[in-house]
Design a protein around this nucleic acid. Structure first.
Length: 839
DNA sequence: AGCACGCCGACT
DNA sequence: GTCGGCGTGCTC
């Protein structure tokens, strides 16, 4: 962090040359020093966007990290090409936050920048090609080949072309050589065009020319004149109907949307004529992409329990920065949030509410919008980039003081956060896995709060063990809300033994008798049913009934997933697909059958078991479109669906009175996941789905299908005894050194050659062993999936003491070790990935 | 990460 | 002979 906050430069000292260390969106572990041109030296500052030449070809958007006067010693710094704005896009708190994240999650600050800035704020540079005006093909001393001729001809017709245009003209994918040759022959010019990707939304509007609006007599005269042209008259009448200029001339200034007139079926050519004759005038207005609604200052009335909780939360915040709100489903956390948010906003601070992705599309956002109106921004992954830039700018300009968003919204340019609320704090989707930075948004939010001297409220019905542990250790405050709001009752649980049913031949298409009867009962009473299975698709794999052969991916160490659509088998990891063979390639048998249960298959089974019921499915495949999720929710809410089968998506945001039965198809699948967190997750998932059953007057039923009904965890889920479950599970965590007692860092080693990957992983492991920090090292082991996309995978796990010193030292040494290894020829092409708190 | 430069196999 | 495969090195 030190490197970022060195001495400030003295702007008055004009004689000295200024240099800027710039954060660039590239995965290289340092900033780059550029020269600040004289004319920019007064305007530039930390957090400003600039464009710079990087390497030979690339032009990149960078963020100024530091300004100083120390010229680089071993190279000549290139100049900054341009300053993009007259203000800082990123504030100093954010830069500190980025630096913290890069350090804590072992990645490069450029990678953090990449994740943080919406791509609309990163300029794209595109190479454009133009005909050289001084070039004459006839006098050219070099011969041109056919392809070059074609390209030149195409260029003659257009002013400029991009590389892609050239590729499509020639139908070739690599045109570099041709371009290069033409440049040498001085036939074309290549130049960089930098353009801003973000474009504001513009509304075309029309209004009456000012003369007519100001003078009623003139307007009357106009009508007399125009009555012989009925189409134009119609337009004017429509306009006056929408904008009563007679009564309120000042309204004319804003006019109306052009669309209003054209959508009304009025003649567009007459409209054009009116404009041409100076009667109407057109103008453009930059508008927001978000609907603006005024917030109503509706009083939220809290129940006595909620009020009590609110008082407790505030008390806890007196001495602690983070409070865990443990509130069971349906206890009315939302009302509490709203009350708190209102208070913080009234105090002049900003608020961020983090929600898991799936919860964001639900009615919660609509509810908040009603209360907070236009000062609330929504930051969602399904929003377009332009929309994200608008939220960013809204926060930057102060227009938005409250944002509801997914994990990446922690990067928005808040400058005075008063509170961050993380709802459904236990949700694993707050952790980013794939591209670096591999951050946990809940944890990062706590850090961000600290940087702002703000408070963090974590809310959950089933807290993560980390948070609960911190609460018990008095590091966090703890407030429980354990009564359901209104008269809603807790559901009744039933354990259905699949093995017993199977023996008695009562298991039909994977449904136990218990579950089938409960569903039937609900259908008879016109009530709704939810079926939960956390696996999409039809079936996980296909197997030969005679020899047990299972089709596997050619590039990865996984079985191929069977998709009913197109009779295909697909690889989940690399996208490889293959037709289902007619006979087993191993033994020739034709008894190939699908094994296992996906939502698609359950939907099919339900249709067979309950032919009269209306069945719908909700999973990634049916909700991919922007409104797919909402449509399904509405369908279900309005009672057009009797049975909804889905993945964990159905655990969020379904608040419907008519759900009385919830079925969990295969609890064992959740429970026997090979991971120390399996129990914790099972408790969370089952409790969350179960929470959907039975609202208001009627007690709901939850049917858990399992092959081992006598496990302690079921008892604890049924009694809702989170604490008991926690205490028991924590025994194991402590005995076997698992979080939250230790911190885990996972290091993945990947290479296309098995031997090299193994050797690198072992080397790494030995070197890590020498780090003088108290630790436990596991591995290196072949990954859970040994090969992905033809890359062999090894994993090492380091378990460290919870003290941040030990972690920091270990990470620091680890970076050195990795650099050292990558410097060796043998391991140059090996990829190492560090994942901190991987989960 | 991209992207250039540079050195070896399979094709018009 | 060339196209184009990807190993290696660099980016202020």
């Amino acid at each position: 962090m030190d490197t970022l906050f060195g001495d400030q430069y003295d702007a008055k000292d004009e004689k000295s040359n200024l240099f800027a260390d710039i954060i660039l969106p590239v995965p290289i572990p340092k900033m780059f020093t550029y020269k600040v041109p004289r004319n920019l030296s007064e305007e530039i500052g930390i957090g400003y966007r600039v464009i710079v030449q990087f390497g030979k070809k690339k032009v990149l958007t960078g963020i100024i990290g530091k300004v100083h006067q120390k010229p680089p010693s071993n190279y000549e710094a290139k100049p900054i090409m341009d300053l993009l704005d007259s203000y800082a896009t990123v504030n100093p708190i954010q830069i500190r936050f980025w630096a913290w994240m890069a350090e804590y999650y072992c990645c490069h600050i450029g990678e953090v920048m990449n994740a943080a800035l919406p791509s609309g704020l990163k300029l794209s540079s595109e190479s454009k090609i133009q005909l050289n005006p001084t070039f004459d093909a006839d006098t050219c001393s070099y011969p041109l080949d056919d392809r070059e001729e074609i390209l030149l001809q195409a260029l003659g017709q257009k002013e400029e072309m991009s590389y892609e245009d050239c590729e499509s003209v020639l139908g070739l994918k690599s045109i570099h050589v041709i371009i290069k040759s033409l440049v040498i022959k001085e036939a074309i010019l290549v130049f960089e065009q930098v353009k801003e990707k973000y474009s504001p939304k513009v509304e075309a509007r029309v209004r009456l020319a000012n003369a007519y609006a100001a003078d009623k007599k003139l307007l009357e005269a106009l009508f007399n004149e125009i009555s012989v042209k009925p189409k134009q008259e119609e337009i004017l009448l429509k306009y006056l109907q929408e904008v009563p200029v007679y009564k309120k001339p000042e309204l004319n200034q804003k006019g109306i949307e052009k669309k209003v007139l054209t959508d009304a079926g009025l003649s567009t050519s007459s409209l054009k004529t009116l404009v041409k004759n100076g009667i109407l005038e057109e103008y453009k207005l930059i508008v927001s992409r978000f609907e603006r609604e005024e917030g109503s200052d509706e009083e939220i009335s809290l129940s006595s329990e909620q009020n009590e909780a609110l008082i407790q939360i505030k008390q806890e915040f007196e001495e602690k920065n983070t409070v865990l709100l443990h509130g069971i489903t349906g206890s009315g956390k939302t009302e509490l949030y709203i009350t708190l948010i209102k208070e913080v906003l009234a105090g002049g601070s900003q608020v961020l509410l983090l929600l898991p992705e799936i919860a964001l599309t639900t009615h919660m956002v609509g509810r908040l919008r009603k209360v907070f109106g236009s000062k609330m921004g929504v930051y969602h992954s399904k929003y377009s980039d332009n929309e994200r830039v608008e939220v960013w700018n809204g926060v930057l300009s102060g227009k938005l003081s409250f944002v509801v968003g997914v994990r990446s919204s922690i990067f928005l340019p808040f400058d005075s956060l008063g509170m961050i609320i993380v709802d459904e704090e236990h949700e694993s989707s707050f952790k980013q896995f794939d591209p670096a930075p591999r951050f946990q948004a809940r944890d990062a939010a706590i850090m961000l709060s600290w940087l702002h001297q703000a408070k963090t409220l974590l809310g959950s019905a089933t807290p993560s063990f980390e948070s609960y542990y911190n609460a018990r250790m008095k590091k966090y405050g703890y407030v429980a809300l354990d009564k359901r709001f209104g008269e809603a009752q807790l559901p009744a649980y039933y354990l259905a033994d699949m093995l017993v049913d199977k023996k008695k031949n009562l298991l039909k298409l994977d449904f136990t008798r218990m579950l089938r009867e409960k569903i039937q009962e609900a259908l008879n009473n016109q009530e709704q049913v939810l079926i939960f299975q956390n696996r999409r698709g039809y079936a996980p794999y296909i197997s030969c009934e005679d020899c047990g052969w299972i089709p596997e991916c050619e590039h990865c160490d996984v079985s191929l997933t069977y998709h009913q659509f197109g009779e295909e088998m697909r690889c989940h990891y690399c996208g490889f697909k293959e037709k289902v063979p007619n006979t087993c390639p191993a033994c020739g048998s034709n008894k190939l059958s699908a094994v296992g249960l996906g939502t698609e298959r359950i939907e099919e089974s339900l249709a067979l078991l309950f032919p009269e019921a209306r069945i719908a499915r909700m999973d990634l495949d049916t909700t991919r479109s922007k409104y797919g999720y909402q449509r399904l929710l509405e369908d279900f809410g309005s009672g057009n669906v009797d049975i909804l089968v889905g993945t964990q998506m159905i655990t969020k945001g379904l608040d419907f009175d008519k759900v009385t039965v919830v079925g969990i198809m295969d609890a064992d699948r959740i429970l026997y996941f090979p991971d120390f967190r399996a129990g914790e997750r099972a408790f969370q998932q089952i409790t969350q789905v179960a929470g959907r059953a039975g609202r208001r007057d009627k007690k709901g039923s939850v049917i858990i299908q399992t092959r081992k009904p006598d496990q302690a965890i079921f008892e604890q889920i049924i009694s809702g005894d989170y604490k008991q479950f926690y205490i028991q599970e924590m025994g194991d965590r402590q005995r076997f050194y698992y979080p939250p007692f230790v911190k885990i860092i996972k290091i993945t080693t990947r290479h296309k050659d098995f031997k090299t990957a193994e050797k690198a992983a072992k080397y790494l492991h030995n070197l890590m062993g020498e780090i003088p920090v108290k630790k436990i090292l596991l591995g290196p082991e072949k990954g859970l999936i040994g090969k992905i996309k033809n890359q062999y995978i090894f994993e090492s796990i380091a378990k460290l003491d919870r003290s941040s010193n030990a972690q920091a030292q270990f990470k620091h040494e680890l970076q050195h070790i990795l650099e050292e290894l990558q410097a060796q020829k043998e391991f140059r092409t090996v990829r190492f990935v560090v994942d901190v708190d991987p989960y």
